[in-house]
Structure formats: structure tokens, C-alpha cells
Design a protein around this nucleic acid. Structure first.
Lengths: 335, 335
DNA sequence: CTGAAAGCGCTAACAT
DNA sequence: ATGTTAGCGCTTTCAG
């Protein structure tokens, strides 16, 4: 059907050898300027397109990188993907996106699938449910480069890109305290995620700074990252039953904030909700909750940085022993 | 670095020919059961993975399909993508997603890029800005299969998957009328999109059914599909200046509804907004606007159907002359 | 500066 | 039932 023109076709038409054509197209130096021009003109005119599959086979590389995030319909991740694509395309790589939906099985399946599809490297933000990392450790051990962003693991050394979660969490909590709230709880993500522990520390920092008491009972975890609305509703119900009336919540993520507001909407009018502050890269959330304070992550920049490091790993001719753990700052938006 | 085991390696280890190994792995019938078992066991044990690049080169197909949507951070499209992936993965195809951000240049670039990357076919929902279709017509003419969903074009015959936009629009508008609103306007998408004309017809139908007058001045178009918040603000400002006070708006899309609510938020308290009804697959929108009536499209199902038709086209041994235009029904959710 | 030849990994004719 | 061979399109020695 769709039969594109090949290097051989050009060679035949111009009565030269395929290798010369290849050289012209890859802009080799050892070629006559005139021959090169003839070839390039012909290629242009006949809309020659290099066959990337053949090229990949030859080079043993696919010039594509895999991305695994929990979901794309999420402001943070979609912005990060834009950053990833901007770098990847500029460097001639293709981006293959897949979603884990925060489920362990889907994460394993996707990573396996991408590795089979011979991506040259993987950019991962861990699924909330994952506690067994052997699928990743295994592939990494076999030489596949990985870079983690946002939700990282420490099973082996590699580049990572994160934000200063602890400080972001502290600032968000502090903003609630500044507004006069004293009974502040924390709606947290899955307990084994790297970001969960860090954000919890920031929450504690803020309480401590203000001589407010901390107990573990102030924290509710969502083991599926909010994938089940039920887990959020349980937390909200739990807060409602505390002896102390909760007047503010520090929420660990966008999705949880959304679920949280949704849960309260079913219970009572907006005016009576606790105040909410939390990590969020969504523009619509602060419309929902008029006084919503959010901690913005530089998602686009994180995607960019992670991709740059990954491509460095992929293109490095020598084994890499020195890894960078890039930590960017968050920005807080108060109302 | 990462040197996977090949068919040759297996052949050498078992002292048989590569073709036999290939036959065993592709489950050919003309092979001794015992030999087959030996090979499969060895492959399993050594974690053999077929090299899809070599396989693609050989078959002249990449077993991947390209998807072009305006953006993934959009409930409708992310649900559609889930449907696309469910079918594609099941049939052994990979999915490569790209975003046009409703911009013509990016759409052209992405489609070009995907075609170069030798996808076997393309699943497209048109960008709002696109009025020149030659980049698509050209590739289609050269034999690349296309299936359109949601936002289609009629430059050539092929399979399409849409919803009954006219009826959905009529029902949404009718629901506003049922609530007692009489001065209803329509915030529309880009005028050249297929869905725009259809939804406008439904809007007119509802007005006519209720003996309400229609004039073109009731309709405002967003030429960039709401990509620029400005275009929505202009429309809202225009409504505010009408002689007749607008008491309800029928909005053509999710993104426009969001932008519309956002624009009103800047102007006046929620209680004084006009009522809104519109096409939306987002769960969060009805929280924003308490009485928001939405028309849900079966996005997942649309993705599924489109992918099935595309794979049919790809795998058909003969030129296809009979095309299906699948039209699904919408569901309306009132409050 | 250009050409001939080999090979990336896989598979489908064509033998045997 | 198995082996031999050739080739998908591209690139890279190695020779000239």
C-alpha cells in the first residue's frame, strides 16, 4: 500500500551507490558538495523520509523514551509531559506515554511493555500502590537507563528530579496557621511514596514551629492515592468524628484535594468546609474552594530536567557513576 | 550495554536453525512438539524477548497506532484514550499519543512526525484551528489509514465515530428551558469543527420546539476552542452587554464551560451567574456550578470503536470501499 | 570522495 | 519437520 521512497530508490535514480546517499543524508563530511546537493534536492523533491525502524535496527536503539505516570488527566503530570516532550523532540526522541492509574499491575505491565518495545530509557513517577520494585530493579540491572521524577525510589542509584516537598508542605501548613486555624489535619497520599514521607515532615515542621501538638491521629493515608473515592470519604468521615473540630486540612495532592472537596460537597454547604491547602497544579481547584492555598510544583521544568538527564544516560558512552538528585523549589499561591 | 538474547543465540545454544526457533516462537503448526517445547523452555528460562524493531522492519509494519487529540488533560479525551488503549493493547498494538493543543502547526507537525515514525494508522480528533486538511489528505492518498472520532472531516471517505451531537445539544438546551429559562445563548466552539455545526443545530431545534426566537446574535464562537481564555471572556462580556439579560448558557465543551465559569467568577458571585448546561465528561464541573447540567459522551466506547475500525483497516488485505459512520448516543445528567 | 559488502534480528519462500 | 537463503532499509567498515 503505502510504499515510501528509500535510499536505494534515490541511489538508482541518480546512478550512485546507496552508501553515498546515506552519507549525504546524514550530512557526513567526506562527501562532494555537489553530489550532496544533488542528493538532497532529489530527496526533498520526492519527499524522502528516513525509515526510522531500519535506522533503529541498525543502531540498536529506538530513539524513543517511555514515560510512566499514574494518569495524564492530571494537571501536574500533563504539564510534566509537556516538558518531557519539549526536550525529547528537540533531541530527536519520541515519547511513549503510559498510565499506571496508580495500580501496581498496570505499572508492571506498562514497564514490561515499554521495555519490550525497546525504548532506550524510562522516565518514571511511581504508582501509589507499588511496594515491590523488582520489575524495575531487574530491567535496570540489565542496563536499561531509568530516571525518576516526583515519586522516586531508592532501590538503586540514578538521577532523580523532585521538588523540595518538605518545605512546600511546611509553607502550605504555615499559611493555614497564619490564617488563624489551629486544628489542622493532614490528608496524605499512599504511605510508601517518597513524597508522602517528605510532605508529612513539612507538615510536622510547621506545627512544631508554632507550638502546635502533633499526633499520628492527625494524618489519614490514602493507600490508592485517591483512586477510590471511598478512601477519601472515609478520611473525611474520620475527621468529622474527631473530638476537636477540624478547621483546616493540608492535602498532599491535586487528586486528593479534588476528592476531598467532592466529599465535603456531599455533606455540607461550602461555607462550612474546613479550609484547604495543598499541593496542586490545577487552575480550576481554587475556583472550587475560594480560599484554597496551593503549592505549585514546576512540573514543566521537572519534565525537562528529567528528560535531559535520561538522554544523557542513554547517550553516554561510558558507564555513569555519578548521579544527580535535582531538587527544585515550589511556589505557594495564597488567597 | 543492554544486549538482549536473540533468536540466533537460541539456535546456536540448541544446535538448530534460526528459522526453526522463529517458527516455535510464532507458534507455527509445522513443527515438532518436542522441539517446540525445548525452544520455548529455553526462551522462557533466558527471558528471550522478540525484538519488535526487527520484526517491524521485516513486516513493513510497526504495530503501533498514532493518536492526535487536542490535549490529554481533558476528561473526554483521557477517557477516549483509555478506550483506545484497551483495544490496541489487546490486539498487540502500541499507542503513541500526541497533543495538538488545538493549534494548526502542532497538528501538522505531530501527524508528520507520527507518519515518519511509521505508525500503521492514525486516530484523529481534529484541532479547533485547522481549516486546511491537505496534510491529512496527502498521507491518506499515499495509503495511510485514518479513522476520525469526535471532530471529523469530510475530505474523503473513511470510518468515523461520533455521538449524536444534535440530539445531545437539543436535550441540554431543553433542560434549561424546562428549568424556566427563556433567554438562552450558546457559547460555541470553533466554527469549522464538525461538532460545532451539529451542536448549533440541536440548540436551534430546542428553541424552535419551544417557540423561542433564534438569531445568530445568540451564538458566540471560540475560534481557538478556548485555548485563549480571552476569547471566552470576550463572549461573556458580550452577553453582559445584551439588551436582554441572559439567564442561561448552553456551552459546547468541557473546556469552554470551565473557562466560562472562570470568567464569571471574576465578575460576580456564583448566585448571579447564568445557569449553564453543556457537553462535559468531567466530574468536577458540576461541583463548580451546583446546577450544571451536562451531556456526557461515551468517550471510552468511542475510543474503543474507533480503534477497532482502524485496526480493521490496517489489517485488511484488500482495499476497503465500505466505510462506517458510527454514531453513539449521549447521556444527559441533570440536577 | 565513492562503492562494495556485510549485517542489525527476524521471517517467509523455497528447498530437503 | 527442519535447514538454507535472501532481504526488509539503513549504516559502516574497508577498499579503492
Amino acid at each position: 500500500m503505502y510504499k515510501p521512497i528509500t535510499i536505494k530508490d534515490i541511489a538508482r535514480a541518480l546512478a550512485i551507490s546507496p552508501s553515498t546517499v546515506s552519507r549525504a543524508l546524514s550530512d557526513s563530511y567526506e562527501i562532494n558538495e555537489l553530489t550532496k546537493k544533488r542528493i538532497l534536492d532529489y530527496a526533498e523533491e520526492h519527499k524522502y523520509k528516513r525509515n526510522p525502524i531500519a535506522s533503529s535496527l541498525r543502531h540498536g536503539r529506538s530513539y524513543s523514551i517511555g514515560v510512566v505516570v499514574c494518569e495524564v488527566a492530571n494537571s501536574f503530570f500533563s504539564q510534566a509531559i509537556n516538558g518531557i516532550e519539549s526536550v525529547a523532540y528537540a533531541k530527536g526522541y519520541h515519547v511513549i506515554i503510559s498510565q499506571s492509574h496508580d495500580a501496581y499491575e498496570r505499572e508492571v505491565m506498562n514497564i514490561q511493555h515499554l521495555a519490550n518495545r525497546s525504548v532506550d530509557g524510562l522516565l518514571i513517577s511511581m504508582s501509589a500502590e507499588t511496594t515491590d520494585f523488582s520489575h524495575i530493579v531487574d530491567l535496570h540491572g540489565r542496563g536499561l537507563p531509568f530516571v525518576f521524577f516526583d515519586r522516586i525510589i531508592n532501590e538503586f542509584e540514578t538521577h532523580t528530579v523532585t521538588v523540595n516537598n518538605r518545605e512546600g508542605a511546611r509553607k502550605a501548613t504555615q499559611s493555614l496557621i497564619d490564617k488563624g486555624f489551629r486544628h489542622i489535619v493532614h490528608l496524605a497520599n499512599a504511605p510508601h511514596l517518597s513524597i508522602t514521607a517528605e510532605r508529612l515532615e513539612g507538615f510536622k515542621d510547621a506545627l512544631r514551629d508554632n507550638q502546635l501538638p502533633y499526633t499520628d491521629s492527625l494524618v489519614r493515608y490514602c493507600h490508592h492515592g485517591g483512586r477510590l473515592q471511598e478512601e477519601i470519604e472515609d478520611a473525611v468521615a474520620y475527621y468529622a468524628n474527631l473530638d476537636q473540630k477540624v478547621d483546616a486540612i493540608f492535602v498532599a495532592s491535586d487528586r486528593l484535594s479534588m476528592g476531598c472537596i467532592q466529599a465535603y460537597h456531599q455533606l455540607q454547604p461550602v461555607a462550612q468546609h474546613p479550609a484547604i491547602a495543598g499541593f496542586s497544579n490545577s487552575d480550576s481547584l481554587n475556583m472550587l474552594q475560594p480560599d484554597f492555598t496551593c503549592v505549585r510544583q514546576p512540573a514543566f521544568e521537572m519534565g525537562r530536567a528529567a528528560t535531559e538527564k535520561l538522554i544523557q544516560l542513554i547517550e553516554s558512552r561510558y558507564p555513569v557513576y555519578h548521579f544527580e538528585n535535582i531538587v527544585l523549589e515550589t511556589e505557594i499561591i495564597t488567597h
